Simulated scan of single mutants.
Amino acid sequence: MAAAAPLLVKLVLAGESCVGKTSVLRAYAEPGPRPAASYLPTVGIDFKVKTITFNDTTVKLQIWDTAGQERFHTLSTCYFRGAQGFVLVYDITNSDSFQSITKWMNEIHEKADEEVEIILLGNKCDKETERVIPKQKGEKLAWEHGIPFFETSAKDNINIEDAFSLLAEEILNKKTYILHDLDVVDLNGSKKKRTCCKQ
């Protein structure tokens, strides 16, 4: 008997240029020591795949790294459609990147499906001496939008795994609920199929 095909989940990283989205993605998708590097801003779009196991189910995470530069904005946001989860990233040493989070949230609500999961990351928490955004401001913004919040460091691999694991768990719990909800038993005890199901 052939093994079941893995579930495919599409995630998108969004945020301004140079907040560390590529570094966050590499810290998660390519764990282990890497030589120190100064990454150039992503040009256009890039993605990596990471396979995880959730409740004995193999899940393939397809994680898209979008460019934050304004000239790539239309290209980046066209990848929002079909995504089940978003990782919104700002830089704790850059106030403009924090202020732009509301703009990115609006873009997600306009161009992505309604039932997406979102997490907020305040990246570069290893640069405490350069901090301009207090942790409490990140927590407050996340609370206002009803989404989880983590302060992360791609350099020191702080909270990266925890953040992606929580996002994946929220998405997969929802998918499992939807799959189980496909069969409906009516009051007469007969089973019937739902005619549609939004994933």
Rank of each mutant, 00 (worst) to 15 (best):
M1D: 12
M1T: 05
P6V: 03
L7N: 03
L7I: 09
L8N: 14
K10V: 06
K10T: 15
A14R: 02
E16V: 04
V19A: 03
S23L: 00
V24I: 14
L25Q: 02
A29K: 08
E30H: 14
G32I: 05
G32M: 06
A36G: 11
P41C: 06
F47A: 03
V49T: 02
V49S: 00
D56C: 08
I63G: 08
G68Y: 07
H73P: 03
D91F: 11
I92G: 00
T93A: 10
D96N: 12
S97M: 04
K103T: 12
M105Y: 10
N106G: 13
N106V: 01
I108C: 03
E110D: 10
A112T: 03
E114K: 15
V116H: 11
I119R: 05
I119H: 05
K124L: 01
R131M: 06
P134A: 07
K135Y: 12
Q136Y: 05
G138K: 09
W143I: 08
F149T: 01
E151T: 02
D156M: 08
E161I: 13
E161L: 07
F164Q: 02
L167G: 01
L167C: 07
A168F: 04
E170T: 15
E170Y: 12
N173H: 01
T176K: 06
I178A: 13
H180M: 09
L182N: 12
V185S: 05
L187E: 15
N188V: 08
S190I: 15
R194P: 01
T195C: 14
K198R: 05
